[in-house]
């Protein structure tokens, strides 16, 4: 075990997978010599000069050519510098990578892991802060993975690279250097599709992913001070969702607060809410509450107001407890 930040854990996962499997290649903007703008790929080009590529500045080219590499039999791990820059590659991701296995009747597959930092809290303004996972969770054929700790970042990224299907791996940049924790050196995988109960509680379930998992832990601490035992379920994989873990928690607590930093309307938390309403309404003792970003573009000066905070999550807990 070594204490690592999330950035170090991601770097460690990439390095170990590149050592283990010579089909793994890494490509993206400023990821070679510069080590990536967040340094996630630092030093990889020195160890693997033939498998790390600083690409021209074109997201559709990065993803489009990575798809070709994957079709050919490689395991590309392209990086999109910020999730806010992913849209030129949207067509290649949702209409090509995600559809290839299906449309070819299984003759061609795209084992590719797209890494990209997402989310707010770093004073990056509209174009360095969005949390647009819902565009991608709406895409059959694509998996969507979001770690919230360094250890999970390594384990989930390793599993994603080994996965036979295309994976969008969202890195909560607010947590890149927020804290260190023990990360296993060498082989460490976390299976895709398994949520984790980060804190147990009997009164209310908080569902979250990425940075919001940490916010929920803070909110649960605050709730404990008021005598409320909140359970924090970190989804870790959005697609495929760990439906059993979600339902099991709500059946235990009877209350649900879904927390996400994307705009409320159409966010992935809406899908969680709908699932709970369809499958667990008989266990619910109050309304399903969503605590989310506001339905605005991501603001710069008022970022702190926009981002769901522990206080706002606690207000959500209060609402469902008081029902």
């Amino acid at each position: 075990m070594t204490q690592m930040t999330m950035v170090q854990a991601i770097n460690n996962a990439l390095r170990e997978e590149m050592r283990r499997d010579d089909r793994v290649v890494v490509l993206g903007e400023d990821i070679g010599k510069n080590g990536g703008v967040f340094r996630c790929t630092e030093g990889l080009i020195d160890e693997f000069p033939d498998r790390v590529f600083d690409t021209p500045l074109a997201e559709s080219g990065i993803i489009g050519s990575a798809i070709g590499m994957a079709l050919y039999g490689l395991r590309p791990v392209p990086e999109i510098q910020f999730m806010d820059f992913i849209y030129p590659a949207f067509d290649q991701i949702v209409s090509e990578a995600a559809k290839m296995r299906y449309r070819s009747g299984g003759q061609y597959t795209v084992p590719m892991t797209i890494r990209t930092p997402y989310g707010g809290g770093i004073r990056g303004g509209h174009y360095h802060s969005q949390s647009s996972e819902a565009y991608f969770t709406h895409t059959p054929g694509l998996k969507v993975v979001v770690p919230s700790t360094p250890s999970d970042a390594k384990g989930l990224l390793t599993s994603s690279i080994r996965d036979p299907d295309p994976v969008l791996f969202l890195e909560p940049k607010k947590l890149y250097r927020a804290f260190r924790e023990d990360v296993p050196e060498g082989e460490h995988t976390v299976p895709l599709g398994q949520a984790l109960v980060r804190r147990e509680g009997k009164d209310v379930s908080l569902f979250a992913w990425g940075y919001m998992s940490q916010v929920c832990l803070d909110a649960a601490t605050k709730a404990a001070g008021k005598g409320i035992e909140a359970e924090v379920v970190d989804l870790r994989t959005l697609v495929p969702l760990d439906v059993d873990a979600v339902l099991a928690s709500v059946k235990k607590t009877g209350r649900a607060v879904v927390v996400y930093e994307a705009p409320r309307t159409g966010g992935y938390g809406g899908a969680i809410s709908a699932l709970l309403a369809e499958r667990a309404i008989e266990y619910l003792r109050g309304p399903i509450v969503r605590v989310a970003g506001f339905d605005t573009p991501f603001p710069y000066a008022l970022e702190d107001v926009y981002m769901p905070s522990a206080d706002r999550v606690f207000a959500g807990i209060d609402k469902v407890m008081a029902f």
Binding site: G64, S65, A66, I67, L74, D91
Partner: peptide, 22 residues
């Protein structure tokens, strides 16, 4: 495999060729 939207296959070809070179 064929895709209806025009031009989307061209970067794939580039990536396959890149893979051959690698």
């Amino acid at each position: 495999s064929i895709s209806s939207p025009v031009g989307t296959q061209i970067p794939h070809a580039m990536g396959i060729a890149w893979g051959m070179k690698l």
